[in-house]
Amino acid sequence: MSSLQQHDIPADIACCHDYERYAEQILPQPHWHYIAGGSGNESTLKANNIVFDKFGLQQTLLPDINQINTRVILNSERHENPILVAPIAYQQLAHQDGELATVQAANAQDISMVLSTLSSTSLEQVAQYQTSQPLWFQLYIQPDKEHTYDLIKRAEQAGYTSLVITLDAPINGLRNREQRHQFSLPEHIQAQNLQPYSQSVSNQAATGLSSQQVMLSRLLAQSPRWKDISDIIANTRLSVYLKGILTVSDAKKAKELGAAGIIVSNHGGRILDGVPTSIEMLPLIRQAVGHDIEILCDSGIRSGSDIFKALALGANSVLVGRPVIYGLATAGAMGVAHCLRLLKDELQLTMALTGCASISDITIDKIRLP
């Protein structure tokens, strides 16, 4: 990380949640509200932040454990931890080093990263820093089919090993908080992966900014269909994960199409306010699709015990988003690395106290259901 800006970690940081208040103080208010905000009245965002407390833990006394093993297999790859950095757009809004700081910090903690289509650093440049853990690419399907397949080809050539297709944001959520604070992207921050296609008006549909005024009918006409997903799965050598699944029927459809995995997610409460939380839907979806398909989960995970609960309820791994950005805003790459280390340490401590020597030991009987 020597090429990146070095920052001190505040001495009173004890958990990932502590980074949030520092990020709010540091970031320009429009940037803060873009990153921290949700859609509508933010009822789903608020629910994400409290729902994990409904699930308790069952402690195991005097467990016969000598060491903790957090390795998992995803996409036939060994991941040292059941944690991935979620796809997060425009990370240079939080810190000038953006995605380069995040990928290096994640690698330092043996954690994989999912790079967003809307990253403020190109997928090729980020891939140059990927070393210890697999690197995945998140895809927003573009209105121009050729652009979509070119993005996939670039990801394949750059060495990304899995493709995460976001399904729940064919059009933008209603971002009231962004509007109130008049958020817009600074001129020096752009969706670098889409720059080769910048002459196309279709890019208006893919930036994820509620401030852009594009006719709803045009956006709906350009949004993807299940047939588009099926075609991508059939025409890429990358394993495909479908993100934004919140219903049993959609989970079954994803499995029927041959997806390698599904990601139970409500997009951090940023798309449709009022949808259920991911953690509440996770066990229902796992029961419906069985155990022969991988399930990942995000939205609201803030601690190692949250990760433990998601694994106990049926997830193979989790994705963490906002805490990473809060760490990035506060202390750059060092903040991200520290945040991820805190999550790892908390997970291992929870495993030790519940008698789980490995991830496979984390079963539903280790938690107390509401």
Rank of each mutant, 00 (worst) to 15 (best):
Q125T: 14
Q128L: 15
A221V: 13
P224H: 13
S2Q: 12
I88F: 10
L45S: 10
V240K: 06
S217H: 11
I295E: 02
I233R: 11
I279Q: 02
E346F: 13
L174K: 14
G274V: 12
E80Q: 11
T207D: 08
E80I: 07
P87G: 13
K46D: 03
Q59N: 09
D361A: 08
A254E: 04
R177Q: 12
D144I: 10
H291T: 09
P186G: 11
L139G: 04
A337P: 00
Q25G: 08
D144Q: 14
S112K: 08
A288I: 05
I295K: 04
D298C: 08
P224Q: 11
G244L: 07
I293G: 02
V264L: 07
C339G: 06
R71K: 15
D361W: 06
L242F: 01
R154Y: 10
N69R: 11
L115N: 01
V114R: 05
G40H: 13
D12G: 13
P283H: 12
L100W: 00
S122P: 01
I68F: 05
L4N: 02
K145V: 09
K227D: 03
S265M: 09
W226C: 03
D231H: 10
A259E: 00
E42W: 15
K54T: 12
Q104A: 11
G56W: 10
G258T: 11
L139P: 00
D168W: 08
A191I: 06
S303W: 07
L61S: 14
E156Q: 15
L209E: 01
Q199W: 10
V85S: 14
L139N: 02
T117S: 07
